[in-house]
Write a protein that binds this DNA or RNA. Structure first.
Lengths: 220, 220
DNA sequence: ATCTTTTTGTGATAAAAATCACATTAAAAT
DNA sequence: ATTTTAATGTGATTTTTATCACAAAAAGAT
């Protein structure tokens, strides 16, 4: 039974894993699996079962001792938590290679999020419609975003103009940003920004790989 | 002074930040900045100065009291640490929208990494050459990768076939993988895999936005 | 019913990461 | 040369995250 003073504090580390859980359980539910235990979720997600149980515990007592979790029920709970019922309209800034690929893809298998408009500096692109997504000029950003009440954006604008582009987004009422330019930009504390840093990921991957290959000095 | 032996373990959290530092300092060096203090790096990277100093300290005493850091020198050190001198050849699996965008982009501003070959199931694509990158059939994977001695790969193969594709990569000698399919796959402990999960990022962003959780960054 | 088995949820503990705060060192000023 | 100022590097501490390990609860077996 859920306690009355639930909804306390959810650790950031737990929040990061929520989409992983949701996807995993959704897939199970769709396959017709009715019942699952933390140990099995662990095998599917590569997250230790103790961590899974601890994470789940932040949202109430979702399972039953000696039984496990009712898949449908837990999916329902996570569905609620992540607001998957509400449609998220996303604005895209920067219609280059990556931007175009994102539009073409447009979260096809995620029915609750969609890029609904895009902005591009290059005048040759603006005015066009790609895969049903209208490309506007950056000058139109503020009016379009406020009119359509969008507050989530993805920026694929190159580093040199990243800060500039993010400033405009913030000024247009955007509060959540995913930035493909890895250079850190300054935003007000009311705005949340995350970075997708491909080069950085590769560098750290290789950094660890280099550390693992030779006679390891991994003591403690 | 720190002994060579002590320069052993670098925390994962620090390793993740290394590319951010490197990029920031490189940019400063290129702009002609000769000297910088942790406080200023903090403003540029949004990472607290104490964290920066602690991170740097894992690689020796890079700075001087009452002065700060010699930009050129620190860049040199990070350059060495991250092996930026060594060229990283990357294999790409899955030449769809995202795959094509990655090839077209091909880490243009990062002169030490490059997609040098790609693999695609669809027979219509294989045999072609895109932006100088040859597209092979997946059947050729093992021979091409061992011949070219590549051990880093990016997979943009959709979730349904993700595990299958990663199995082939591992079998072909790949040890570092960046996977654009967010569903967790199983790999041997000798292989390092990271995930780029756009949908997940958006979901957590919006989750926090709903919670109006304060993303406090203290610069000091 | 009763017993055995299973698996949760969570106190307790450990490990990792972030942060504080300042002695120490070096630079800059006088 | 001496004093003042500045900023590092790091012990100490706090906070966050992960893990252990098991009593309690529920399921399933007999």
């Amino acid at each position: 039974m859920k306690s009355e003073q639930e909804e306390q504090y959810v650790p950031k580390a737990t929040a990061k894993r929520l989409p992983v859980y949701y996807r995993c359980l959704k897939k199970l539910a769709d396959t017709g699996v009715k019942r699952i235990k933390s140990q099995e979720i662990s095998e599917l997600t590569q997250i230790p079962s103790a961590t899974i149980r601890r994470d789940f515990s932040h949202f109430g007592e979702l399972g039953r001792s000696g039984y496990g979790y009712e898949v449908d029920y837990v999916v329902e709970v996570f569905h609620e938590i992540l607001n998957v019922n509400k449609i998220i309209n996303i604005a895209l800034v920067g219609v280059g290679n990556i931007g175009k690929a994102l539009i073409a893809n447009n979260f096809r298998r995620d029915d609750n999020m969609k890029i609904t408009c895009a902005f591009e500096k290059n005048e040759e692109e603006s005015g066009k419609i790609l895969s049903g997504v209208p490309i506007y000029s950056v000058a139109q950003m503020k009016s379009v975003l406020s009119r359509e009440n969008i507050h989530v954006a993805i920026s694929t604008v190159p580093s040199e103009h990243s800060q500039e582009s993010i400033n405009m987004l913030v000024d247009s009422g955007i509060t959540s940003i995913l930035n493909f330019a890895p250079g850190r930009v300054v935003v007000p504390s009311t705005v949340d920004i995350r970075y997708i840093d491909l080069t950085g990921e590769i560098l750290t991957l290789v950094y660890y790989d280099g550390k693992l290959l030779p006679p390891i000095i991994k003591n403690k």
